[in-house]
Design a protein around this nucleic acid. Structure first.
Lengths: 336, 336
DNA sequence: GCGAATGTTGCATAGGGATGCAGTCCAGCG
DNA sequence: CGCTGGACTGCATCCCTATGCAACATTCGC
């Protein structure tokens, strides 16, 4: 029941009346063959529909040309964008992309275990690695793993991080400059480091402005989480009769911010930016749409991808961490 | 400079004091080994960090376990969702996913050429194949290719199609039932068959209601295209002084519909659904958000994925086309 | 015209693993 | 106790391509 095997270099050689090595050489970049032989081989290959078996090739060369990309759920357009950046960049470099959808950094471990069986040359992950034992486990596979925003790195586990902390500070100052005075942060799942850094930066920025109060609620990285968080934050305030609610909201990401804006309007009659300033993070396509015009932070995925490519090809000695500076994108959601 | 090679089955065999075949059999599902030998092999493998080289394995078995997925740009969340459905399903089946981002069906041809070198077991494509010569070219690679909504199929080019035509009819009748009387369709790029079928269905549905007029403008499959199309449609009407504009709009997809709704409101002061009923297609996550609450069509990606998996494993004799019935999702954008 | 340098070619083998076949060992049975 | 069958095991090959090396042909230089 084994599928019909495609023609091999031997078949081509036989048809062209040359040796198998001649066939191999005509298809190996830099291989030395006379023009006459090359022509005969190519003709025979064409006739048989021959294509070199790349798996076999990588068996001898030791490099598969395959790079694995691990992402954490494509329903979040940010991950989709990250994947697209990685994939199109790698394709341009002539490498193949093996995709793995992964739940968390532990799942990343077992995914890499499997992938290492496919001899992938490197792994790019939009998830971060923050547990030391995970990093250790990953290091054993001896394949370069480039992650985003990891707090732990090793010889093989490298990371390209956006300056989330700095971006958080910038957002705080911007919201304050636009007139916000009572602040809140909508967080993501505990343990997702990038957004924890955003919060820390945000709070530090506020502190530098002499503000120590900052409300907090937890979302889920999606639109619905923003809705629920706003309900929790503002619903409580309403019950206690506190008239003036929060007027400056920073959300761990754009989806959350859009949920927040929608719920502020529909459930509390609060308009953005008139009543509350809202900022997000990621610069997802929808954040520019009219109902939101969301001020947000753009991490520059193409630059990140570039750095990731450099890191995955870096030698073991070189530094395994790169920091990129994200860009504040100002829109109407924070404009008074 | 060739990377340090990982341990081979021979190294494990040496350490365990058994033959290479014993190692192979230990790691081959269904391989016959005594418990004692298996234990010694596993211990040795563990000690060396051995993992079978899956590329080599596929060399002998003739099956790589790799399925290629070709998608056309992940900035459209629909493609991202399709990819996620395919990828997670394949992962569950224990197959690896090789990802290719492709511009159009011709690019699909060269992509498959490359992929066939990697001995992929099948190709799943969210693009459709409508040119006969492309289908022929693809057929030559003798690898099953499952596409979405193709008009041409061959032994190897199969397709799972949603009943776009039927969905178009249903949308027409629904809009009419909700009170719309003057209709318009916002189209996508010419040559993208699925949306052309939606339009045809929509027009047929209108015809069955005795309506032959249907305005038309062209979008670009994204939010901006919906904006531009509405500007074209309503701006022209405004100039000619025609008071009553279109009041029932069907858009090739959700992104377009959301752009349309935004521009109707912001540029023309028309509210949805009070002044214009708008329906989209795809049931993207954002279509459920409060500013839109968009009536749309859900093609049921998980069902499509399932059918695609069946098709990719189908024998040559079996039918190479499957039709799934999409579902109308009613929301406030068409509710009077 | 002859030796040498140059350019090609094929042979043989490696790379990691799967598997048909023949042989080994032991338990169970008569 | 001898024999048969079953359970394993190892040997030898094969899968397909890349490549070092030796053999060969050709042309160049003197």
């Amino acid at each position: 029941m084994t599928r019909q095997r495609p023609p091999s270099s031997i078949a081509v050689a036989r048809l062209a009346g040359v040796s198998q090595s001649a066939v191999s050489r005509t298809f190996t970049p830099g291989g030395i063959v006379s023009p006459a032989t090359r022509a005969r081989v190519l003709a025979a290959a064409e006739a048989l529909g021959y294509r070199p078996n790349l798996l076999s090739r990588s068996l001898t060369t030791g490099r598969s040309g395959i790079v694995a990309v691990a992402v954490g759920g494509l329903s979040n357009p940010f991950h989709a964008m990250a994947l697209e950046s990685f994939a199109s960049g790698l394709q341009r470099m002539g490498r193949q992309v093996m995709l793995v959808v992964v739940a968390d950094e532990w799942a990343l471990g077992s995914a890499v275990e499997l992938l290492s069986g496919y001899q992938v040359d490197a792994v790019l992950s939009s998830l971060s690695v923050n547990a030391a034992d995970v990093a250790d486990a990953l290091t054993r596979f001896a394949v370069p793993i480039v992650t985003m925003n990891s707090s732990v790195t090793t010889r093989f586990v490298r990371t390209v991080a956006a300056d989330d902390h700095g971006a958080g500070i910038a957002v705080a100052k911007h919201l304050h400059a636009q007139g916000a005075r009572r602040f809140g942060y909508i967080a993501g799942r505990a343990g997702t480091l990038a957004q924890e850094r955003r919060e820390a930066g945000f709070r530090q920025g506020l502190a530098e402005l002499g503000i120590t109060q900052c409300a907090r609620a937890q979302g889920d990285h999606h639109h619905g989480g923003g809705c629920a968080a706003v309900r929790a934050m503002y619903g409580a305030a309403r019950k206690t009769g506190s008239a003036t609610g929060l007027d400056g909201l920073f959300c761990l990401n754009d989806l959350t911010a859009m949920g927040a804006i929608d719920t502020l309007r529909d459930a509390f009659g609060l308009r953005c930016p008139e009543d509350v300033l809202v900022a997000g993070y990621d610069n997802v396509a929808a954040s520019a749409w009219p109902p939101y015009r969301l001020t947000t932070v753009d991490v520059g995925l193409d630059r990140i991808a570039e750095q990731a490519f450099a890191l995955m090809e870096a030698a073991e000695g070189e530094p395994s961490e790169v920091l990129v500076t994200p860009q504040l994108v100002l829109r109407a959601s924070t404009r008074r």
